[in-house]
């Protein structure tokens, strides 16, 4: 299983990572972060292949991927 870490405090909620993930691993939160936006969070990590496409699209460089 791969590991995706998202620094949710810095997330601006653009959802480009959600769009990029081929396996629907990342979802948007219902809660708000301190910026006042729904942030991206890894939800179904068991589906994650560690392809890193979420991080490739993240404009804020807040995603780290390991596998």
């Amino acid at each position: 299983m791969a590991k995706v870490t998202i620094d949710s405090r810095r997330c601006k909620g653009c959802e480009l990572c959600v769009e990029a993930c081929p396996h629907g691993v990342i979802v948007m939160s219902t809660a708000l972060n301190d910026r006042g936006v729904h942030f991206a969070q890894p939800a179904r990590l068991e589906e994650c292949t560690g392809c890193g496409l979420c991080a490739v699209m993240c404009p804020d460089v807040i995603i780290e991927v390991e596998k």
Binding site: R10, K12, G13, C14, E15, M57, C58, P59, D60
Partner: peptide
């Protein structure tokens, strides 16, 4: 943290 708007391409290009 950058000052760019949500979803702005500059962050990707910088990276």
């Amino acid at each position: 943290e950058t000052h760019y708007c949500s979803g702005c391409g500059h962050g990707i290009v910088h990276r």
